[in-house]
């Protein structure tokens, strides 16, 4: 069953065409990986789906419901995003408790009395200690901040989670733990995911299918297995051959 569909979406920045007639579909409970080089329009597409950018043409369909230019509060809730840089996506003047409870109260997920216990649940879900609630984002490492950002996105029970380069600001050893967390959360909560990365290793680790973008267009959409073993386009082959590999082992 198709959860999210993007139909012939185009976005212009002034006279520059950032997205050129994009079609993608994501099945329910599946993860689509979006790869491409910088400037290919990956983040623009993510922001368009999240409703941060309104496309000039085309439509976005969520659960066979067309999303209008102004989304309802409920529609906003259903699509949540985790950004690349956790340092700049968390408000430094709010404690973790405030960061997590604000969206929950706004979307009326829990009553005021239950906020505290729900916050603890969320932190447990992203494997952080509940003593973190009273601390400010600056007290945490990059990987921990990304976990808080993830907890915030999950706090309002979204159906679709967009992860825009979730690990590219993190160390390699932390990257692995965040990817494992994403996978287990997706399985436990039955999320549909769109994972953006320029790192094909990340895509291989989490995605079921892959869409390759180049200069605002989708050049190939395939299952992960086919994309990595038998890519259909020249550009995909170029991308795959560019990945640095360890010679030994």
């Amino acid at each position: 069953m198709t959860e999210l569909e993007v139909n012939s979406c185009s976005v212009w920045y002034g006279s520059y065409k950032a997205l050129d007639c994009i079609h993608i579909q994501i099945e329910k409970n599946k993860t689509l990986g979006l790869v491409g080089e910088s400037g290919s329009g990956k983040s623009t597409l993510a922001r368009t789906i999240a409703g941060l950018i309104i496309p000039q043409t085309g439509e976005i369909v969520l659960e066979s419901q067309k999303l209008a230019e102004r989304r309802t509060r409920e529609q906003h809730r259903k699509i949540q995003m985790v950004f690349q840089n956790p340092d700049s996506s968390l408000n430094p003047k709010l404690t973790v408790r405030q960061i997590l409870s604000e969206p929950m109260l706004f979307h009326k997920i829990v009553t005021r009395g239950n906020v505290e216990s729900r916050c603890r649940e969320l932190l447990a879900c992203v494997q952080l200690d509940s003593s973190a609630l009273d601390a400010y984002p600056r007290a945490f490492s990059g990987g921990q901040r990304q976990r808080i950002a993830l907890a915030r996105a999950l706090s309002i029970k979204p159906d679709v989670l967009i992860a825009d380069e979730p690990t590219s600001a993190l160390d390699v050893s932390v990257q692995l733990s965040i990817l494992d967390l994403l996978k287990s959360i997706k399985k436990d909560l039955g999320l549909t995911m769109l994972c953006i990365s320029h790192d094909l290793g990340v895509i291989y680790a989490v995605c079921d299918s892959v869409a390759v973008m180049k200069q605002g267009r989708i050049v190939e959409t395939n299952t992960a297995e086919t994309f990595f073993r038998h890519p259909e386009t020249e550009y995909s082959r170029l991308l795959l051959s560019s990945v640095p590999r360890m010679e030994t082992v």
Binding site: V172, L176, D199, G201, Y204, R229, M246, T248, V249
Partner: peptide, 23 residues
């Protein structure tokens, strides 16, 4: 890379995400 001596080096090597060879 083939015979790492310390845990930390092993961890770094494990952290390199595999990408299957084309074809």
């Amino acid at each position: 890379l083939s015979r790492p001596q310390t845990e930390y080096t092993k961890l770094l090597i494990r952290s390199v995400l595999p990408v299957p060879e084309c074809g």
